[in-house]
Design a protein around this nucleic acid. Structure first.
Lengths: 351, 351
DNA sequence: CTGTTAGCGCTTTCAT
DNA sequence: ATGAAAGCGCTAACAG
């Protein structure tokens, strides 16, 4: 009773063969109902748990999904993970999650471990695209890819390889953000982006955001000033520090566009420290639209970006790739459209 | 090249046997150095990845850790998970994570799946303790258990079974919170707890918090009024709603003690809506001390509770249990002490 | 209908 | 020093 129960134990207890037990457990029509019930009862009585490891080895399919997420404490990624998890569970897939902490070495090691399990597919918010070149099993990248809706991106850090990806259009999103500030009458706009180096996908993402920003400025005939772009860590302390410092060089009214909502509380806190009023003195817009944003004070204007849907869609996609024997020739690219959500942190005083 | 590389493939390519390859890969002293190098080189060249599934089946050990977390979007649990993940990686353990969403059915299914893999151990922030009775593999409960430092808890919903657990002392934490408000001169204190029913461990946790609250009131000779206790969902919208409603029955100054920091922004937002000043009209104290709390406006007084350490310690503990052949007879109980962090949302105006 | 058996990839004992 | 072979628990093809 203390040791593991196997098919053979049930077989012995019932006086049938292992294959009969195997068939009974999957309710095969080959067995008469009575026998099946007798076997099931014994299995239950003995406390049988099927051994997935053995089954995987035999079937060459593990139902395991490798998941790579950079940072779980950021609600944006937490939501993506939530979408992955819930959809995977419904589809009968189990997730093996590694938090990469934006470290390409951890990413590389984890990918290697995934191939060793082996998992049936990999879902990843990538760091270095090069780590993914040559991976032969179903793979879907989430949230990050050098994709621009309206723009051609040239860089030799992007491998000449195509990937499946699910993401939202950051170029468009940042365009909407900057455009909104401009429409509110703000021309002096500071943009705080992620500090990741350009070899990382998150660095490319910053480049994409920057492009959207510049496009909006161009559309409004406002000159671009590189001095007004900052590349920072994306936590509250960092955005507090940068805004605290910015206070010395920027004159109200000005605008602040932040890389994500998760770091906006820090910026707001710094503005409060200097008694700058929002939105009268400083207009601020976030990015992502996390749950917190509407409860900040003032509530935060932001760009709504798909989160949970990215995870859900990614799992569906990879699940299809796993089930179908002949993988589709061309890669699948899914792009969600972001949209503007106006709250109290911005205002058009010209109205 | 497109198909999986196995030991036999390396053996064929090198002209040795599979056992030689196996030994070479683990750098066994049985083989001469030259042979080992030749084999390793071939393995590398062919792009070999060891198959953990086969190894697990053979060794009866998977290096897999089953992890159950109720809600990843709450920074408190995200931090615990981060601690688990980072420590597990260092110890060479892989984590299989299921998000239970506070649903005992998901919890039960996931536990069953863990036993089926089989994982080497289970780490869980539990929902129904009964789901864990009879589990024979190493198990450590995190963050939740009917534990009270200074109090004997009687309930028939707690199984007569002992578990390993790592948590922080909620009784003491809530005692500190309520005591702090009382010391700030506030006697009219509203306590917002989790709405989980008492069969769930989170419900018991509410009972524990309540006990700590009552103890503090007793110590200060303040009568306990059950009308001032609310059991709510622990998101910002819920705490917004409850505080919005509370406005009609409470007269400033009063105090607000919330179940966690993650839901405090909602409460603060509701107070702002009614133009109640913090801390002049309402003093508010959170729980957990998440990163956000110091950046809220006003910055949030709270109870600092172990988070990442709980995860880290839990993994160390279970890792020891897994490695050592003879499991310790008695269960291990680790309790972290919470402490008060005073910020701007509370103030002693009597000073 | 029922049972026997090969074999998934790996480790390890035991011959040679 | 080297390799053959058993077997982890399961599934499926096949024989009876």
């Amino acid at each position: 009773m203390t040791t593991k129960v196997r098919l053979i134990d049930i077989a012995n207890a019932t006086g049938v063969s292992v294959s009969a037990v195997s068939k009974a457990l999957k309710d095969s029509p080959e067995l008469p109902q009575a026998t099946k019930e007798r076997i099931l009862a014994a299995a239950n009585r003995l406390g049988y748990h099927p051994n997935f490891t053995a089954r995987s080895l035999r079937l060459g399919r593990s139902n395991l999904l490798g998941v790579l997420i950079p940072d779980i404490t950021n609600p944006y990624y937490a939501s993506i993970l939530k979408g992955i998890e819930s959809t995977a569970r419904v589809l009968g897939l189990t997730t093996i999650i590694t938090i990469t902490n934006e470290d390409p070495t951890i990413e590389s090691d984890a990918l290697s471990a995934f191939l060793s399990v082996p998992v049936d597919g990999i879902l990843s918010v990538p760091i270095h695209l090069n780590n993914y070149v040559g991976i032969k099993i179903p793979l879907v990248l989430l949230s990050r890819f050098p994709f621009l809706s309206d723009f051609s991106y040239n860089s030799d850090t992007i491998p000449e390889v195509d990937f499946n990806y699910v993401l939202s259009d950051d170029y468009k999103g940042q365009y909407l953000a900057t455009k909104h500030l401009l429409e509110c009458g703000i021309q002096d706009i500071y943009l705080i982006l992620s500090q990741a180096c350009c070899e990382k996908v998150s660095g490319m993402k910053s480049a994409i955001r920057l492009s959207g920003h510049q496009k909006a400025l161009r559309d409004f005939g406002i000159p671009f000033d590189p001095q007004k772009i900052f590349y920072e860590a994306t936590d509250n302390q960092s955005s507090f520090d940068i805004v605290d410092m910015l206070f010395q060089k920027a004159n109200p009214p000005f605008g602040l566009s932040l890389v994500n909502d998760a770091s906006c509380a820090g910026a707001i806190s710094a503005l409060n420290k200097h008694n700058l009023k929002i939105p009268e003195d400083v207009q601020i817009i976030g990015y992502d639209d996390i749950e917190l944003s509407q409860f900040l004070y003032p509530s935060l204007t932001t760009i709504h970006s798909a989160k949970q849907s990215i995870g859900e869609h990614g799992v569906s996609l990879i699940s299809n790739m796993i089930s179908r024997d002949n993988p589709p020739k061309s890669k699948v690219h899914t792009v969600f459209d972001p949209y503007l959500v106006v709250r109290q942190s911005t205002h058009n005083f010209q109205d």
